[in-house]
Design a protein around this nucleic acid. Sequence first.
DNA 1: CAGTTCGCCTGGGGGC
DNA 2: TGCCCCCAGGCGAACT
Length: 277
Amino acid sequence: MPELPEVETVVRTLEHLIKDSTIEKIDIFYDKLIDNVSVESFIKMMKSQTFHHFKRIGKYLIFEMDDYNLVVHLRMEGKFYVNDIGSDYDQKHTHSIFYLSNGKQLEYHDTRKFGRMYIYPKSEEITTVSAFKNVGYDAFDERVDAEYLYEMSRSRKTTLKQFLLDQSVMAGVGNIYADEICFRCGFRPETKVYRLTKKDFANIVDATRIILRGAIKAGGTTIRSYTSSLGVDGRFQLQLKVHGKSREKCQVCGTVIEKTKVGGRGTYYCKKCQRRK
DNA sequence: CAGTTCGCCTGGGGGC
DNA sequence: TGCCCCCAGGCGAACT
């Protein structure tokens, strides 16, 4: 499931592969992929548009075109592939193809069909569009600091993990990195946020940035090859320290990693390295 | 307003 | 081997 670092990798890779190319034809095979307008409108608007700029807010991709911003959320399993026009594609899981002026086809794959695309006229300020109604500052936005998180966490009964996952507080962290961030800052995922001090949040902000930056860097290694036939989903080999490591030993202290559920999500932590507050 | 539950999807794993 | 059931998971909508 692509989180902020993977989405960042996708943005950079697609920029490299399709920047300045123009959409000549569009196929949409799964209508619900297009969220905020009809498929017909979407096709009409997108046709003849050129990809100019590639950005990201949280886990959302933003493609700036001539007259519109295309917004894409990959959700669980969405990924892009760039291949030569006419190449075979996975008919079962490809829900859209954009045929481009550079001789390439941009394919959107998604086994679980959770991903969504949105289109907005550029006259609408991007941060105010419907797709971002519940999306707060990006995790790397300078407005996200200890003070901000501390204030946001007052009068909340929620846990640290759920707080990190709350996209309206800070956008970009998903289930995997939430666990890694909790491990890095030394708090149990189920710690109640109202118990944390401003100093604790300074620690949490640092941990968040370090984890996400490290993951982006790991993704960068993948980017360097720029293999266009490769699925552009931003997967990389950042070594995780706790997530998915149940029954394995903690790299720091050797204690067996625990698996539990926090807020209904599979959660991994080291009971010795991470303290409850 | 904050927190909880449900529905969207499908592949994969467990149980038998 | 095959079949059924359930689960994972991001997020919006509906509900408490």
